[in-house]
Simulated scan of single mutants.
Amino acid sequence: MDRIALFPGSFDPFTRGHQDIVLRGLRLFDQVVIGIGNNATKKRYFPLNVMKEMIERTFSNEQNVKVVTYDDLTAHVARELGATFLLRGLRNTTDFEYENGISQVNRYLYEEIETVFLITSPELAPISSSIIRDLHRYGQGVDNFLPYSLSELDRINPQI
């Protein structure tokens, strides 16, 4: 039986910190599915389909990484995918407080699911998607924080 982990998030954008969690997760699981969720409470900065394409390009050489989009509860998606693990990264104690509650609800909805937390690598801990969005919105370069180039992303979708 394969050990499948779902790595859920809005990934708006997908950062080097996210990439690090996926690559480290591959040492623990047979497959990591990156699930880009459609969060009804958030308006996306980068279009969902464009981000999905950029993440797929990032992991094009990793046959054990798959990227999906979804508009459902994470626990339901994990069950549909046959994932019995949720993979999450923690940068700090604030992340833990937030993630702990979510993991409890996911376990309530899907008894077989286990949430596995990986501590973000120290050099990547300051990076957050919201900081990157703000920097980009005000014309600052952010490619050092991303596993792909935003100039490539801008060519795909010039409205960003």
Rank of each mutant, 00 (worst) to 15 (best):
P158Q: 05
G82I: 10
V116D: 02
L48C: 08
A78S: 06
S130W: 01
S10G: 12
R137C: 03
I113W: 02
G35S: 10
R133W: 04
R24Q: 03
I34R: 04
E123N: 12
V67R: 07
R107K: 12
L23H: 06
L150P: 00
I21Y: 00
L118G: 12
D2T: 09
T115V: 04
P122H: 09
V142T: 13
V68I: 12
L90A: 02
P158W: 15
G139Q: 08
E97Y: 13
Y70K: 07
F11K: 02
L26H: 09
S121R: 10
E99Y: 03
G82C: 06
F14H: 06
P147V: 10
N49W: 09
P47N: 09
G25I: 10
N39H: 08
I127N: 00
L146H: 01
E99G: 02
K66F: 15
A40D: 08
P8V: 08
N100G: 07
Q104K: 12
A5F: 01
E111F: 00
V32A: 05
V142K: 01
T84F: 05
T84M: 11
I156T: 09
A75V: 03
G35F: 10
F14W: 06
T15K: 02
R24K: 14
Q31E: 07
H18N: 03
E152N: 05
S121G: 03
R91C: 10
I102T: 01
P158K: 07
E111W: 02
L28W: 10
E112Q: 11
E80W: 11
E62Y: 10
I21F: 00
